[in-house]
Design a binder for these strands. Structure first.
Lengths: 344, 344
DNA sequence: CTGTTAGCGCCTTCAT
DNA sequence: ATGAAGGCGCTAACAG
């Protein structure tokens, strides 16, 4: 049953049927009602989306391209919030969401279906440049949390935020500071970072900007960045964080940091849980700061001291720009300090 | 730049270009290489997904229709796991994921773009029957966690699992049992359930089956179901759970349950957090059981005693059936008991 | 206000 | 192994 069939059955032209569905002002109210009710009665489900897409060149689909795997992104609170903001705007404007990932286990290519999206929101630096190049060059594209040449970006003030929370933490002078980074090293590595490890640039990883903020605050307090031990974590999940955190907490008490600056809430929460299990008191024996401000860190005792970033709003902004509701431009969102009990 | 343009430029037929991309066996290796490399050089991005879709009738897109809002689903651990399993299979077979929700704030209609999916996975009972009827009737569809007439279903053994965990909890006789349900009442309600509230059927809500399992175990122990206080929660989020849990924990100690059977881990975790904040000791003063087995409940101390369901596997099964890799049929997944410290 | 018509870009027989 | 041609279902321009 196609539009044409229906038109023939009803004895009207295909244009009238099409207009009945798409352009109410182009035909009389009665004819429109007649067509719509007959369509329903005869089981015509409305114009085929595929044909309509070909004809109009628009799909009302926006693709979100995630730098991480879908598995990770769907289970990560920050990515989920971003998607929440995106879908909120898309829904409100009759668009739907196609999820793509740039870090597929198997393939090195975008699925062909990606080319049917009307626009793209790219979240995080893609592991593979050439996947980016497969995206249609002339359609709207917004980058989130990193930079793409000539494209609008939505991001947050990582360096100042990190400086601010570190400064707060240093109000109470620590004996030993440690920093746990998220994917800072150029080559994958879980554990202590030594002089032999190269670092990614601030362009490539948000952790680098956050680290720069930490260092600036530490040096404001007369500490030397080279004296601060760093650990690196490749994926922001409990399973990957736990062994590295254990390595830190298992240090002898006179070497173990009593202030641990974590580049994400997930890292900080893992540290909190493992510290509790070992009888290390937070904040008395170990003070902890996070980054992100996810719910899980606030709906518990002690609450995490962290930087709150509004990922939902990031998603909304990106979606509004990609839909052309806001003029494309670089946007910088502010963050706020959340003082919990892990580092009062 | 279209396929036809490219063919003309190269002086070959459109069929050859098409075959170069889709049917390597239909032309010589050299010609194919020539066409592909020239295409890349000239910036032809490959056959247009929209036109291909119209022509072939297939989009390589599978839609997941979520009964809850996208915002909720993306932030809920169980839904996220389901999506993880779905995407794992879709990725492996070159399909992509379109996310739809049956509980949109605004509209009562499926977006038209939904009709381009090759198949549908419907997760949870839709709030509105008529949205279901908008889905193309003749395409593959798999229901998850509830039943649709004539369609294959993937679900878990809610009643026996709930019976088993309740039986475990009753090994240590409680003074007062309480049960916290998830969307059991026919009309929305957050708080204590009284005789005036109608219940949804076991067909409509998984909480009902779980409750039946609880009751069976309680009656095995000589308890009367009418003596057990029930509370209801409409949405499985901390924000919605917290006030109801507070109401329970604020009861005078001689009325407050010392065993709380929660129909989800989120509910149990909220109870755990709020109990800790009030100095109510778990499990000494209050024993807690959950349902789902989400990570957050296991990566903490005390760990949740709960029923582990493998939502990732549910997603995989649904995806394999909708892609036609497995023959469509009803599948029942087993669960397992996870004994943590909240109810040893 | 209604009807006719020309493609949107591609795939796939069929003939060569 | 290659080329020509029809049509997938629809919309928008135009003619009436």
């Amino acid at each position: 049953m196609t539009l044409k069939d229906l038109a023939r059955e009803l004895g009207v032209s295909t244009a009238s049927v099409s207009n009945a569905f798409n352009r109410p002002d182009q035909l009389s109210r009665e004819l429109r009602q007649h067509i719509l009710s007959e369509a329903r009665r005869m089981g015509y489900p409305g114009p085929d989306a595929r044909a309509r897409m070909l004809r109009t060149g628009r799909s009302r689909i926006i693709a979100v391209v995630l730098a991480e795997t879908l598995t990770y992104s769907l289970n990560d609170a920050v990515s989920s919030e971003l998607l929440t903001g995106v879908t909120e705007v898309l829904d409100a404007h009759g668009h739907t969401l196609l999820l793509l990932s740039g870090r597929q286990p198997g393939s090195r290519q975008m699925p062909a279906s990606s080319s049917m999206a009307d626009g793209f929101i790219v979240y995080g630096l893609m592991p593979d440049d050439h996947m980016m190049s497969e995206l249609p060059a002339h359609r709207p594209l917004v980058a989130v949390d990193f930079h793409i040449n000539g494209r609008p970006t939505v991001h947050i003030d990582n360096e100042p935020a990190s400086w601010a929370i570190t400064r707060h933490a240093l109000r109470h002078p620590p004996k030993r500071v440690g920093i746990v980074c998220l994917r800072l090293s150029a080559t994958p590595h879980n554990g202590r970072l030594t002089a032999g490890h190269d670092w990614l640039s601030a362009q490539s990883t948000i952790t680098r900007s956050r680290l720069d903020g930490c260092f600036r605050a530490l040096e404001d307090h007369g500490l030397n960045r080279d004296d601060i031990p760093l650990w690196n974590i490749e994926e922001n999940t409990h399973a990957v964080c736990a062994p590295v955190i254990e390595e830190i907490l298992n240090l002898p008490p006179d070497q173990r940091p009593d202030l641990l600056l974590c580049m994400s809430d997930r890292i900080a929460l893992t540290a909190l849980t493992l510290a509790e299990q070992r009888g290390i008191r937070v904040p008395e024996d170990l003070r902890l700061t996070g980054f992100d401000g996810i719910e899980e860190g606030q709906y518990r005792a002690p609450r995490l001291t962290t930087v709150r970033q509004d990922s939902i709003e990031k998603g909304r902004m990106a979606a509004r720009m990609v839909l052309g509701l806001d003029t494309p431009s670089d946007r910088l969102l502010n963050t706020s300090l959340l003082i919990g009990e892990t580092c009062p």
